Amino acid sequence: MRMSGNTIFIPGATSGIGRALAERFHEAGNTVIVGGRRRQLLDEIAAAHPGIDTVEIDMADPASIVAASAQVIARHPDLNVVIAMAGIMRVEDWTHPESFLSSAEQIVTTNVLGPIRLIGAVIEHLRTRADATIVTVSSGLAFVPLRSTPSYNASKAAIHMLSESLRLQLADTSVRVVELEPPAVATDLMPGQRHSRIAMPLDHFVDEVMSILAAEPDVTEVQVERVKFLRHAETRGDYSEVVARLNATDPHA
């Protein structure tokens, strides 16, 4: 993926990692379109960063995904990069079905069906571009489970395998698939995470991501150093120890 001259659509970029990436890519000389549910936040981003375009999109709503994607393509026919950033994470207790079923369904709808529907809405257009990229967003928790967030872990494992599979299917096209695998990052994804001592500072995370993309234009998995502890646990042979260490730090356990 080249670092400038792209037209990049990032749903779920009104805060956290998505917004930070949107700002960095904009500064690097890309046309950036930020998507989100809340018009006020979109307007604030557009005012703070002239040149960033915005579109309302709800990644839990199939019709919204189709309509927003069509708007973006119509306004920006050079669209060649889509970053499927939107996601939710919640604590669940699976010993009490009444407490987790609704949460689990919402997580799967947003974290799994959202990216699937988004890719479905843009793939035909991306295949017309000479140099296109789909960026999926999984997590270190796709590879090692956090006890308190079963549905989130599973949703990100699904995104990892979706990314692997799409990369195979699109190998003979102009569309590349890049998987971003964050560790815990200091954002508002979970209550208290922004101030967690184990969360990676957001600026440091985005600095490292941009450095990896610049240094390795053909990278398929973007792994900052801090996530490798989780990502490669099974390969190293210390999976059980990593599971224990990760869950010993879980504030929700």
Rank of each mutant, 00 (worst) to 15 (best):
L101A: 15
V177Y: 01
I83L: 15
H232K: 04
L42F: 02
D131H: 10
L42H: 07
I52L: 13
S174K: 00
Q223I: 00
P50H: 04
A154G: 09
G36C: 06
G16F: 06
H26M: 03
A253N: 13
E225C: 04
R167G: 15
E92R: 04
P97M: 13
V206D: 11
H125V: 05
P77T: 08
E56L: 06
E216Q: 15
P182F: 03
I65V: 14
G114K: 07
F229P: 02
L189G: 06
D93P: 12
H232T: 14
D93K: 08
P251D: 11
V185F: 04
L141E: 09
I8V: 08
A84Y: 02
R2D: 13
D250M: 07
D172M: 12
V224P: 10
I119C: 04
A132E: 05
R147Q: 14
D250W: 01
Y239D: 06
G192A: 12
H232A: 08
A86G: 09
A214D: 11
S163M: 05
A47D: 15
G51R: 05
I159W: 06
G114H: 11
G35W: 04
L113R: 11
A20F: 03
D53P: 00
R194F: 04
E44K: 12
D250R: 03
P62Q: 02
Q71T: 15
W94E: 07
E124N: 14
T54H: 09
F205S: 07
I134N: 01
N30H: 03
D172P: 00
R231C: 03
I119N: 07
M190V: 14
I107E: 13
L41Q: 13
L42A: 05
T95I: 05
E179R: 03
S240Y: 08
A28V: 12
D207S: 12
S15M: 07
G87N: 07
A63K: 08
F205W: 04
P251G: 09
I88P: 00
A184Y: 03
S155A: 11
P150C: 09
R176K: 11
S148W: 03
E179F: 04
A48I: 03
V222K: 00
S155E: 13
V175A: 02
R37N: 10
T133S: 13
T149E: 13
E208A: 15
T110R: 02
T136Q: 01
H76K: 02
A171N: 09
L141T: 12
M190S: 07
R197M: 11
R231G: 00
V219R: 05
T31Q: 13
H252A: 14
E23M: 13
E241L: 08
A158Y: 10
